[in-house]
Amino acid sequence: MKNQEIIEKINGFLVEEFEVDADKITPEANLKETLGLDSLDYVDLVVVIESNFGFKVKGEDFVGIVNFQDFYNYILSKVGEKQEVK
């Protein structure tokens, strides 16, 4: 799967699961503010990531994630690690 396909998949499930306007999802937008995340929403986000991409997410993985580009980079790196293992 190519990076752009992964980003499109991410945006698709964010729009669907968190009912956010797709136009508000930009690389520099703040993830927490744009999605309106509270602590329970982070649990939902972890579940959605794990079910869509097949890797385990740890809470500390979110420490450095501020905007959507950070979020994309995190998932892209994890997907890349998973593909290297195969």
Rank of each mutant, 00 (worst) to 15 (best):
S51K: 07
Y74K: 00
V47Q: 07
V48L: 06
M1L: 12
V79K: 00
G59H: 03
K86W: 08
V48I: 08
I49A: 08
Y42D: 11
D21Y: 13
L76T: 00
V57P: 03
T34V: 02
E60V: 02
K78V: 01
Y72R: 11
A29P: 13
N11W: 04
E81R: 03
V47L: 09
F68E: 06
V47C: 05
F62K: 00
I65Y: 14
Y42P: 06
K56M: 13
D21A: 02
N3P: 05
T26R: 12
N11S: 15
F62G: 04
K24S: 14
E84I: 07
D61R: 13
I75T: 11
K24H: 02
E84W: 02
V20S: 12
F71I: 10
Q4I: 08
V47M: 00
I65K: 00
E28I: 08
N52T: 11
D61F: 04
V43H: 04
L45D: 06
D44Y: 14
E28Y: 15
D70V: 07
T26L: 10
E5A: 11
I6T: 01
E17N: 11
G12F: 05
D44M: 15
G54T: 02
S39Q: 10
F68N: 12
K9H: 13
V63R: 10
E16P: 12
A22L: 15
T34W: 04
N73H: 00
I10M: 15
L37H: 13
S39F: 08
G80P: 04
L37M: 10
D44T: 12
L37T: 13
T26C: 04
E28M: 14
L14G: 06
V66Q: 11
E50H: 00
T34R: 07
F18D: 00
N30M: 01
K32H: 03
V20Q: 02
F62W: 04
F71L: 01
Y74R: 05
G80R: 07
L35C: 09
A29R: 11
Y72M: 05
D44E: 12
D61L: 03
F68W: 09
F18H: 07
I10E: 06
N3V: 10
F71P: 01
D41C: 10
V47K: 00
I75P: 10
S39I: 01
V43T: 15
Y74A: 07
G80T: 14
K2G: 08
I25C: 06
K2E: 12
K56L: 12
L31T: 03
E28R: 10
L35F: 00
D70N: 00
A22V: 06
K32Y: 15
D38T: 12
D23K: 14
V46S: 01
Q69P: 04
V63E: 13
I25Y: 01
D70K: 01
K82F: 05
M1R: 04
V48D: 03
L37W: 04
E8L: 10
Q69A: 04
N11Q: 10
L37E: 09
